[in-house]
Design a protein around this nucleic acid. Sequence first.
DNA 1: CTGTATCCTTCCAGATACTG
DNA 2: CAGTATCTGGAAGGATACAG
Lengths: 148, 148
Amino acid sequence: MTKNKDFWRRIESALNVIGGKWKLLIVIALKDGTQRYSDISHKFPEISERMLVKQLREMEHDGIIIRTVYPVVPAKVEYSLTQSGEKLIPVLKILGLWSLIYLGSEVIGEDLSGPVEVDSTKLNQLIEDIDGILKDVHTKLNRKEDPV
Amino acid sequence: MTKNKDFWRRIESALNVIGGKWKLLIVIALKDGTQRYSDISHKFPEISERMLVKQLREMEHDGIIIRTVYPVVPAKVEYSLTQSGEKLIPVLKILGLWSLIYLGSEVIGEDLSGPVEVDSTKLNQLIEDIDGILKDVHTKLNRKEDPV
DNA sequence: CTGTATCCTTCCAGATACTG
DNA sequence: CAGTATCTGGAAGGATACAG
């Protein structure tokens, strides 16, 4: 059994990987597929070039995005989520639902207090995605036990 | 339907609420029940008093912890998780599992690369907790539709 | 187009001393 | 016991100019 303390340190790491002011935005930019540097930059002009490059490098190092360079002139570089990055999406969505239900609107910023509905189909999809992750947990960590 | 952009801003809020260097530690300190100020401080001596107070105040404002003052001398103040805070725990665990499976050990810090097992019972408990949250989503947001 | 390099400012966090 | 007040250094982050 993983020691409890170790496990909470894992959570800490996860928060470091997606925390900070900009990384979530980059995930959002890439969640629907590959984007060029300029696409991301244009999508979120608030991020300065300096910061964008820095965050992209860190996320690449953490293994949640991939950087592909095309040796052409003018330069062309594409970014996309790795599998780890893709798997992060449903986890973030859970976090969003938690926020939606349990966090007061004052905390969020007032303007999104309007009525909210949730698409049951998407919710079911989300459950399946989470199940997929838990399956991965099982196969990756308990290979020695009998497979479910 | 919640607008997509709004929903991602919810996620951002959630990350703000638990992000930073210290807040997760406070959640950990409180996850097994009420603790006094000095208990927390003693449990994590790395947190300076200045920071501890600051983080506690923010978390209180965000509604994930509660502060109870007993008017006695010497002063006695207790902190505990609110319901929102409690519900956060399983969400964080999912995040930890993601980290455990998809994040390389180089990212985490080398020393916890040892063999890992996962307790199936706890995993099932986790699934139930998440289901509970999704149920809350449904009841809170789609009251007008027919209940499932 | 996709970045680097440099400078400059602001803000955060640690240390320390003090209080009801 | 449970904090506040103040000082200070360093890191994070913005603006701008330049390069392959």
